[in-house]
């Protein structure tokens, strides 16, 4: 796509750099980097590759980017499609930009390095087990803060419910379901499993198990990103990320309430 820059044809070079910047900005936005980072990496890459200036306007689902060089201006608009949080991609893109800034990569080199980035993912079963353990740890942490105790069955059922729910969440995500549908369905399953412990009286702290097993659905990254964006002046994207996070929470609530109605286990409030 991007050819070796032709020194004799500055327009071609500028167009290539504009495309590269747009690609970098797109990759960062798709993998949930905060706006300040997206803008700074894109701008620094453009400047490193010989532009006089790079300007960017970020929106929730797209961005506009312009590069300037010797009075000539190239502008492009790109759509942003959410591909899920991936810090590995963000790290690799940032290192590519740093290499370009140090003069170790030219436009062709940057393009080749970006091509080589394949989003890294952990094995699904491992993530599910770790998230199950995380929610059991959350249950214990919550009790520590209140000087309370619970029996082993509480932690066990929390682990089971959240590990199964995480597996379902990853499976539904791989089928490209809307995240809202996905979260509601997985929260229903988590609460249903925890509710069994409540109904059959296996656990001595039903509220702990019911509340800890859905903590894997709290959109922590989007919430922090939303606040960070707004603190740094990107109010627009901050609001849209925050609204999305609250919608995800509401979708989970639907799943939880549905499960509590079905099993008639109202232990939350």
């Amino acid at each position: 796509m991007v050819t070796t820059p032709d020194i004799n044809c500055p327009e071609t070079h500028q167009r290539d750099v504009t495309n590269l910047c747009a690609r970098v900005g797109g990759m960062l936005l798709q993998h949930s980097a905060e706006c300040a980072l997206v803008e700074s990496i894109t701008r620094r890459l453009g400047l490193a590759l010989g532009m006089d200036g790079v300007e960017m306007a970020l929106m929730a689902n797209g961005f506009t980017l312009s590069t300037f060089r010797r009075g000539r201006c190239d502008t492009t608009v790109r759509r942003n499609q959410d591909r899920g949080i991936n810090m590995h991609v963000v790290t690799e893109v940032q290192r590519t930009m740093l290499l370009a800034e140090e003069g170790k990569l030219d436009a062709a080199g940057v393009s080749a390095r970006l091509d080589a980035i394949t989003p890294f993912r952990y094995p699904r079963w491992l993530v599910s087990v770790m998230v199950g353990l995380s929610c059991a740890a959350f249950a214990r942490l919550g009790l520590l803060a209140r000087d309370a105790e619970a029996d082993a069955a509480t932690y066990l059922i929390t682990f089971l419910a959240s590990a199964v729910a995480m597996q379902v969440r990853q499976y539904l995500a791989s089928l490209h379901f809307n995240p809202l549908v996905n979260f509601a369905a997985a929260a229903f399953i988590a609460t249903s499993i925890a509710a069994q412990g409540v109904i059959h009286g296996w656990v001595d702290s039903p509220k702990v198990a019911m509340s800890a097993c859905v903590l894997l659905f709290v959109p922590g990254f989007p919430l922090i990103n939303a606040m960070s964006d707004m603190v740094k002046g990107y109010i627009n994207t901050g609001i849209s990320r925050g609204v999305m996070a609250v919608l995800l929470l509401l979708a989970c609530c639907t799943g939880i309430v549905l499960a509590m109605t079905v099993w008639d286990a109202w232990t939350w409030l």
């Binding site: 949080i85 810090m87 989003p119 491992l126 770790m130 998230v131 740890a137």
Partner: peptide, 17 residues
């Protein structure tokens, strides 16, 4: 010790290297 577990678990969801 307990707080380290969710930090790692969620870092894996975020695909931290």
């Amino acid at each position: 010790g307990l707080a380290a577990i969710p930090a790692v678990g969620f870092a894996m969801i975020f695909n931290v290297p």
